[in-house]
């Protein structure tokens, strides 16, 4: 009995120690964001002053990140869902090749991708200076995630058979897409959308190369504040980033768990 108990306690301690090792820095960082003076510690008192300063200095980057994430989502939906449908309905050697090519940006380092974009399109000044330039980079990087999520669901519901069923009843290709393909791919589209927004909001690599002083996103601003601001401001900034990203990650996690069961059970409530 006692050795058993001892093992359990030891295991618990090791687990808690590991969790603490990972969590403490994150918590410390967030706590630093609301501490009056980090070097004096919590004794100096808690304050929202730094959050206010971040919002005053960097609210533009937060707005831009959200705008780019939503824009990226829009473009990946418009491009990705029909593309996934086209690839899923006629699996062939060509469609597999297309899928591989589209997935390539995931494997290429973001910096290289950004450099390629700058080399190819940097000459178009207005484009280079606008946030659209970053948006294009984000679309390249996130599209495969949308594509894969939607394709997986379309394969699970046997979209080819459903489409033939709809066609036999007189539905045109457009009607089939909106009445049958999209509603039955809803789970994959939602999972893909969460993924795209999360990746876009947190993207640094590519964006750091593509940004201009007037088109800074949240992660780029974050790097900027780490380099040039006092620690409390950078920490408050991190806190704001967490507030944005954690709900998305939680939603993604919950959805990722529900998703594989969905096609087997059929509908969602």
């Amino acid at each position: 009995m006692i050795p058993h108990r001892l093992t359990f306690v030891l295991q618990l301690l090791v687990t808690l120690a590991c969790a603490a090792f990972l969590l403490v820095p994150a918590l410390a960082s967030m706590l630093a964001g609301v501490t009056a003076n980090y070097f004096q510690g919590l004794r100096s008192g808690l304050t929202l002053r730094w959050i206010g300063e971040v919002l005053a200095l960097y609210s533009g980057t937060i707005g831009l990140s959200i705008a780019i994430a939503l824009g990226t989502l829009g473009v990946t939906l418009v491009l990705g869902v029909p593309a996934a449908w086209a690839l899923a309905r006629k699996p062939s050697r060509l469609s597999r090749l297309v899928e591989e090519v589209v997935t390539l940006p995931v494997a290429i380092p973001g910096l290289a991708l950004a450099l390629a974009l700058i080399l190819a399109y940097g000459g178009f000044r207005a484009f280079r200076m606008s946030p659209l330039f970053i948006l294009v980079g984000h679309v390249l990087y996130t599209l495969p995630f949308m594509l894969r999520a939607v394709m997986a669901v379309l394969a699970a519901v046997d979209v080819k058979a459903l489409e033939e069923g709809a066609a036999s009843l007189g539905a045109s290709p457009l009607q089939r897409f909106f009445h049958v393909v999209v509603p039955n791919a809803k789970g994959g589209i939602l999972a893909g959308a969460l993924m795209v927004v999360t990746l876009s909001i947190g993207e640094f690599n590519l964006t750091w190369m593509l940004h201009t002083p007037l088109t800074k996103t949240l992660p780029v601003g974050l790097a900027d504040s780490y380099a040039s601001m006092r620690l409390e401001i950078a920490s408050a900034y991190t806190l704001i980033f967490f507030v944005l990203i954690v709900p998305l990650l939680v939603a993604l996690q919950m959805f990722g768990r529900a998703l594989p069961a969905a096609p087997a059970k059929g509908g969602r409530p």
Binding site: A161, S168, N184
Partner: peptide
């Protein structure tokens, strides 16, 4: 063509 078709998998719409 206005034909009715019954598929082996039935192809009923789950939505």
């Amino acid at each position: 063509r206005n034909v009715g078709m019954v598929f082996q998998s039935y192809a009923l719409f789950p939505n």
